[in-house]
Nucleic acid binder design. Sequence first.
DNA 1: GCGACAG
DNA 2: ATCTTGTCGC
Length: 301
Amino acid sequence: MAPTPIDPSGVACSEFLPDPGLSRAEMESLQRKLATTATFADDHGVDPAAVAIDEPADLTDGLPGARQETLSGTHAEGDDAGDSDAPVVVGIDQAFLTPEDGEERAVSAAVAIRDGDVIEYASATTPLSIPYVPGLLAFREGEPMLAALDTLSVEPDLLVCDGSGRIHFREAGVATHVGVLLDVPSVGVAKSLLCGAPDEPTDERPAGWQTPIRADESVETAGVGGGAADGDTAAPVIGHAYQSRQYPNSRRVNPLYVSPGHRVSPATTVEFVDALCAGYKLPEPTRIADAYADAAKRDAA
DNA sequence: GCGACAG
DNA sequence: ATCTTGTCGC
């Protein structure tokens, strides 16, 4: 099914499509508009405990098989599919094909997980028309992501994106773009900080540790209403640094930088990521999508 | 002008 | 993101 031309929020999807003709200023303008449309508060009805993953997937011997959904009209008891009432979490990641001579292509890989098990894989290979520019990542990778998500048969209750959401110069990272366009709850998980500042230093923190990331001078806050002179108001929390894993000694692990994409609050974003991590630095949906993207890339090559 | 910046 | 083997440490 083709992407909806206009999403429920009133943002025209066509404006979002990668367009080499769009100037940088125009793309930035669209992001400000998108940020105004985005919701950085909880509006999802998904309990973090309901999406928790306890056992990490074993990726040393290939990808985990997708468990078949029960296809019969009625619920079957005792089949090997998980709880079909549990929320569906979709992790998505990209890999790239850059031939010496040919055109650059993106391989988008989406993994749907329910009740701790992979229930579906979906990927799409798309030509890229825009180079990577910090702050404009969504205009490069957003379309490929939508293409992969479009082939999924299940509806995501929560989307876990690679990269930032609200932690962005205009509060419109790729997780926000995709979340708003599909009007699905989404969070962004980044391995490095794009902008903003942590309340506390993030070095050598134990697993489970977190600290708020607040908007700094480089962040244009969309906010609500007119221009209130924020003289002594604390800068808004746009995300968190979250230490998902740490080694007992020596070698240090950097924290993740997690932020709301759409319809999720900063605090709940951390809860989701915490629940989705199962012993590795990256949350399982992202970790599996990452492996799937590499596999799909090999097949495409 | 310099810095600085997800994937 | 991508180009890439071995290697230090739990």
